[in-house]
Write a protein that binds this DNA or RNA. Structure first.
Length: 426
RNA sequence: GGAGAAGUACCCAAGUGGCUGAAGGGGCGCCCCUGCUAAGGGUGUAGGUCGUGUGAGCGGCGCGAGGGUUCAAAUCCCUCCUUCUCCGCCA
């Protein structure tokens, strides 16, 4: 959510910056009228309320002195009726204005390259060597099936399409990756571990920006108005919703493993095979709460923490600075980290690291105070995947595959895999 | 799921329609006494947000949330949420 005062005072500049986004901002133009209307109504109704408060005191005084107050009571009945009318009018304007603010995307940071779509994302750096295979490399879904690790057919029977059952060494690898990443971030990168609820309420989904615009992307528990989390970002960021934290607590760095649930509405037919695009997947998520002046340093930090995982797994990747057209609704700046997937002959997103600045903090009302008596300011929130587990499994299977269909286990994972060096049928 | 109780400012807590536009503590700030990790006395302070004004300020809202009754609601009525206790069920 943007600051309404910023829109009021600097409308043209806000509109210019938002125009670089690949988002519909036509609703923006209604802001001026609504904002003015709101203030007009407030002024009128507050004047009446002030008058009513004063006269109520007089009535009270008269009652105590046993005087007759029926005449001014009658006047006040009219005032109160008008107040009620104006309050309702204000409620409607407020509602519309609030909805409008909730549907305006974040302002891109000046260091985000201006561009229309993913074609114009900027490659920041590359790491690792793309493997050259002397044999015909297989896709991870074939490797996983042959090695008894992944069972898509049975998952489709048990649930439906876009689900998977991990089995045997597949399940073990998934769990090893979760533990490896959690340990790394806790022990080496200074994070506090969180195990969050996998369902959240509507306020939380609104706080991080999934609602109101993207409700169709989420799975919903209708009876409770709860949503299955699309990422641990939602419960972890909302832990501090409506709180004022003291400056000594900043920065707060949380790491959370969770399953994630996404309806993938609008991506029917894309990545239908394999682990890349599932309705349910595992992810280790990094979330930072920081002072505004520190947030861009922390964006680099989060990205480096995610990259560290790929480096230790020795998986080739590149980092993209997302252009304004591909930033998404909530981010001011975003790095996507893409891992090499041989079967796609391409890099595929495995982590997304974003600085939301005060966009989420304003929605979720998360503030901090520099001094005990000072004014509360919105802090900045950031998050990044560290990493998506399913896509990491896909990358490991494909990049570490051998000619005989076996897969070498990356060294750092072996302690988590019972000391095994290789997954094979033999 | 059933029955009951409760939700007031950072914390505890008084308060059943108008001199409460929130008493009293604790805490916190300052001062005094004492003096070395004890205790005592005095005094001050109450959040947040919106509107308005260049500004000091003025005004609105606020007693879990949202409605309602009333000239007037922390106080009466309704709905919801959360917490606690007991019972039932249960990983």
């Amino acid at each position: 959510m943007l600051d309404a005062k910023l829109l009021r005072n600097d409308f043209a500049e806000v509109k210019r910056k938002l125009s670089h986004r690949n988002e519909d901002i036509s609703a923006l133009d209604r802001f001026g009228d609504l904002d003015q209307k709101r203030r007009d109504v407030i002024q009128e109704v507050e004047e009446l309320k002030s008058q009513r408060n004063k006269v109520s005191q007089e009535i009270s005084q008269m009652k105590r002195e046993k005087k007759d107050a029926s005449e001014i009571i009658e006047q006040m009945q009219k005032v109160s009726a008008r107040v009620k009318q104006l309050d309702e009018e204000l409620r409607l304007v407020d509602e519309e204005l609030h909805y409008l603010l909730l549907t305006i995307p974040n302002l891109p940071h000046e260091s985000a390259p201006i561009g229309a779509d993913e074609e114009e994302n900027e490659e920041v750096r590359k790491w690792g060597e793309i493997p050259k295979f002397e044999f015909e490399a297989q896709a991870h879904w074939d490797l996983g099936k042959d090695l008894g690790m992944l069972d898509f057919e049975r998952a489709a029977k048990v649930t439906g399409s876009r689900f998977v059952i991990y089995k045997g060494m597949g399940a073990r690898l998934e769990r090893a990756l979760i533990n490896f990443m959690m340990d790394l971030h806790e022990d080496e990168h200074g994070y506090t571990e969180i195990m969050p609820p996998y369902m959240v309420n509507r306020e939380s989904m609104t706080g991080t920006g999934q609602l109101p615009k993207f409700e169709e992307d989420a799975f919903k528990i209708r009876e409770e108005d709860y949503f299955l989390i699309p990422t641990a970002e939602v419960p972890v960021t909302n832990m501090h919703r409506d709180e004022i934290v003291s400056i000594e607590e900043l920065p707060m760095q949380y790491v959370a493993y969770s399953a994630c649930f996404r309806s993938e509405a609008g991506s029917a037919g894309r990545d239908t095979r394999g682990l890349i695009r599932q309705h349910q997947f595992n992810k280790v998520e990094l979330v930072h709460f920081v002072k505004p002046e520190d947030s861009y340093d922390h964006l680099e930090k989060i990205a480096s923490h995610a990259e560290k995982v790929l480096q230790l797994l020795n998986l080739p990747y590149r980092v993209l600075n997302m252009c304004t057209g591909d930033l998404g609704f909530t981010a001011a700046k975003k790095y996507d980290i893409e891992v090499w997937i041989p079967s796609n002959d391409a890099y595929r997103e495995i982590s997304s690291c974003s600085n939301f600045e005060s966009f989420q903090a304003r929605r979720a009302n998360i503030r901090f105070k520099r001094e005990k008596k000072g004014k509360a300011e919105f802090l900045h929130t950031l998050n990044g995947s560290g990493l998506a587990i399913g896509r990491t499994v896909a990358a490991i299977l494909e990049n570490y595959q051998q000619e005989d269909g076996s897969v070498i286990i990356p060294e750092v994972l072996r302690p988590y895999m019972g000391g095994k060096e290789k997954i094979s049928n033999l």
